[in-house]
């Protein structure tokens, strides 16, 4: 039996599969259920300091080739996180990554400061959501100096909690942005958020389908684009990477790891293969390791470089 465990920023994950933020992350019970279904760790839905309304429905739908969403980061704020996420973190044997969001830079600093009450093991800075641009402008993750400044300011208040910054694939200088985040103190990179935004029009109604009109695109068709982004980030930085985007199978996860990811974010795959996708993928990874004579999964990280 191969060892699938991964050490990420000093935190041990029993396998590399991490539930991506925004999927099945509304309640602590749901996150626990994902762990029961085989995930090595889970990421909460992005937590705001104050309650934040998302977009009306339709907020998401899927096709064979892609998935599109514009949920708009709804959250009930820090009080609910204290009620639900704090006890979850205290009772969970598996790591809970706490994602945080804000509208402006100060919001991020404020929530990063307050979120300590839930004792996060890893913080993830969601500065790359493409679905709130109407409200807050271009994501900070798309501008090198903004991303760097935010990491620096959050790092000042996030103390010893490892800080992962979730980046946007919608840039042509990802290496530069990742490097700047590393310079300013980021402990890890999540590469990354959804592509786009994209637009789907219903030709009978003659209107966009999503209520927000545009939405972030994910799904199996985009996997090569995400693998390339992870490849580029791995080439640029030394801090570990969570590779997220287009991963549906254990083989996909292994490919992502060979491009440079230590952990692999799984989100849209729940749509394609249901909630037990995690245990299915763990088995696929395990089988591949047996076949390939890999005893310790960590050895394949970046193996394709």
């Amino acid at each position: 039996m191969s060892d699938l465990s991964i050490n990420f920023c000093g935190v041990k994950f029993r396998n590399p599969l991490v539930l991506a933020s925004g999927i099945l992350g509304v309640t602590a019970s749901s996150l626990k259920n994902v762990i029961r279904n085989g995930a090595g760790g889970v990421t909460t839905k992005s937590i705001w300091l104050n309650p934040h309304k998302g977009h009306p429905n339709p907020t998401m739908f899927g096709t064979e080739h892609y998935f599109i969403n514009a949920v708009g980061l709804p959250d009930a704020g820090i009080e609910k996180a204290i009620d639900e996420i704090k006890p979850l973190i205290e009772s969970s044997e598996d790591p809970i990554i706490v994602s945080i969001a804000g509208g402006n830079k100060q919001d991020f600093v404020d929530i990063a400061e307050k979120i300590h009450v839930v004792n996060p093991q890893i913080l993830e800075l969601n500065i790359s959501c493409p679905n709130v641009e109407d409200q807050f402008g271009r994501p900070f993750a798309c501008v090198t100096v903004d991303a760097g400044e935010l990491v620096k300011r959050v790092k000042e208040v996030s103390k010893n909690v490892p800080l992962v910054v979730k980046l946007s694939p919608n840039v042509n200088n990802i290496a530069e942005i990742a490097l700047e985040c590393e310079k300013q103190g980021a402990d890890g990179i999540n590469m990354g958020n959804t592509f786009g935004p994209g637009l789907v029009i219903d030709i009978d109604i003659r209107k966009p389908v999503l209520h927000n009109k545009v939405g972030g695109v994910s799904g199996p068709g985009l996997k090569p684009l995400y693998v390339k982004k992870v490849w580029d980030v791995y080439s640029a930085v030394k801090i570990p990477i969570i590779g997220t985007g287009g991963i549906l199978t254990g083989e996909d996860a292994i490919e992502m790891m060979m491009a440079g990811a230590s952990l692999v974010g799984v989100g849209t795959a729940v749509y394609y293969r249901d909630i037990d996708v995690f245990s299915k993928m763990v088995k696929e990874i395990s089988d591949w390791c047996e076949r390939s004579g890999v005893e310790n999964l960590e050895e394949i990280v970046g193996a394709a470089h």
Binding site: I23, L24, V26, K45, N57, T59, F61, V71, Y271
Partner: peptide
């Protein structure tokens, strides 16, 4: 929101 088991609401 989704109706197909992914959003968690």
């Amino acid at each position: 929101k989704c109706g197909f088991g992914i959003c968690g609401n």
